[in-house]
Design a protein around this nucleic acid. Structure first.
Lengths: 149, 149
DNA sequence: GTCAGTGCAAACGGTTTGCATGTTT
DNA sequence: AAACATGCAAACCGTTTGCACTGAC
């Protein structure tokens, strides 16, 4: 059994344990999430799912993502101006999104350790390292902009 | 001349310097931004403006905010799930937004120094300290939740 | 057979846009 | 007078919801 298959089975198992029904759309969404190793918007998930099951509706995808998120199997994060991105929950990490090309990158969550500590001690604020992506400009776009100007 | 008056004059001066017209809606928006010492959504700006000029439309407010932002007089930042918040550009700072009560707090931008340095050296990513608010739970909501559970 | 899950279409909140009209310069 | 700014309404995008129906258990 490959690693992807293992992850898929684990997700399905958790669904069963919570008395959720295993339906074709759910299988398809899980398949996409397991296969996609980057961060997908709900719309991208829908389009991937529809390549296999064209009749699955966007609202169903949203509902499935929400259900999976409720079971802590999926997390989403907001990327500034654009649509939220979803992916399977795994090792906790942070996100940064390029303002120019809108690609989201993962960053190790411990780079936020100091920020988290400081927010806690100064404001009593408990940082959620995962939920919102920092903005900035990625290496490629930086380079491209530098050349242009 | 008070500090607020000075800021207002500076904004109007910059508008004139860029051959932008000084109109009643613009004056009203600037007035609101100068007077508001916290972070307002576009809708809040609109409602405040409409208390003085009920006929100013939301789209005009958006256009004015956009224009002011183009002149670097205003900045906005995205706060996760909810509407973006706007305020006069000033000393650069970061933002954190409470996931529970949706209030946005300013944080000194130098708490991001280490994160910025690390993103730069590992990914070549240039952090925009301002543009997206970190998520988490503020002190009050933390306390409230702790009591409830 | 029951009920959770689904598809569809319509509604939503935040934001943007087209166009005819009004106001600043 | 010319150019720009505005109000209105309609469109837009991402997301959520109401409802009748279907399919997993």
């Amino acid at each position: 059994m490959t690693l992807d298959e293992a992850r898929r089975e684990e997700v399905l198992k958790t669904l069963r344990e919570h008395a959720k029904r295993i339906t074709a759309p759910k299988r398809a969404v899980v398949e996409v999430l397991v296969g996609a190793h980057d961060h997908l918007t709900a719309d991208e998930v829908t389009r991937h799912v529809q390549q296999v099951r064209p009749d699955v509706s966007p609202s169903t995808v949203y509902r499935i993502l929400e259900e999976l998120e409720g079971l802590a199997l999926v997390v989403h994060s907001h990327t500034g101006h654009a649509a939220a991105v979803y992916h399977l929950a795994g090792r906790s990490h942070g996100h940064v999104t390029c303002e120019v090309c809108h690609v989201t990158y993962e960053v190790p969550s411990d780079i936020f350790n100091r920020v988290a500590r400081e927010l806690d001690s100064t404001l009593g604020f408990e940082l959620d390292r995962h939920h919102v992506a920092l903005s900035g400009i990625c290496a490629q776009c930086r380079h491209r902009l530098r050349v242009k100007l």
